[in-house]
Deep mutational scan, measured.
Amino acid sequence: PDLGLTQLFADPNLIENLKKNPKTSEMMKDPQLVAKLIGYKQNPQAIGQDLFTDPRLMTIMATLMGVDL
């Protein structure tokens, strides 16, 4: 199971919303991170391994779920 990750990354406004959010806007200036996020739309399971190697993803996930870290 993808634990709902498919829906989190399926939002067509995902990148724009993250660019507008004060907690994630600075991160979204990294083209490699943006490319990763776009890739998760097609393969949400890929985030599982990346969560352990890129701490920014935890902040992004929390933001998408509405959790304040």
Rank of each mutant, 00 (worst) to 15 (best):
P44V: 09
D30N: 04
P31G: 07
D54I: 01
D68T: 02
Q42E: 15
L18N: 00
A46I: 09
A10W: 09
P1F: 03
L33C: 02
M65H: 04
I38D: 08
D50G: 05
L8G: 03
Q49E: 14
V67Y: 09
D30H: 02
F9G: 02
K19I: 09
L33D: 00
E16R: 07
M61N: 01
N21Q: 04
D50W: 03
T53L: 09
T59Y: 08
S25F: 07
L37F: 03
D54N: 02
N13E: 11
N17S: 15
N43I: 03
P44E: 04
M65T: 12
E16W: 04
L3C: 10
L57G: 01
Q7M: 14
D30G: 00
D30V: 02
E26H: 07
L57A: 02
L69T: 15
M61L: 13
A46D: 12
D68F: 02
L69W: 02
Q32H: 09
A10P: 02
M65F: 07
N13S: 10
G39C: 08
P1M: 11
I38C: 06
T6C: 09
G4Y: 15
M58D: 06
A10C: 06
I38K: 13
N21T: 02
M61G: 03
D68R: 01
N43C: 05
T53W: 10
K36Q: 09
A35I: 09
D30A: 02
M58T: 10
E16L: 04
D50Q: 05
T24C: 04
M27T: 02
L64P: 00
K23E: 07
D54G: 01
K29G: 06
G48S: 12
L51T: 06
V67N: 12
K19W: 05
N13I: 04
G4Q: 14
L69Y: 02
I47W: 10
T53M: 11
A62H: 05
D54S: 02
A10N: 12
P12Y: 03
L64Q: 03
P44W: 09
K29W: 04
L37N: 00
T6E: 14
Q32P: 03
L33R: 00
L37G: 00
Q32M: 14
K23R: 14
P22R: 03
D50K: 02
S25L: 10
T24A: 03
Q45Y: 12
P1A: 11
G39H: 14
N21S: 06
G48M: 15
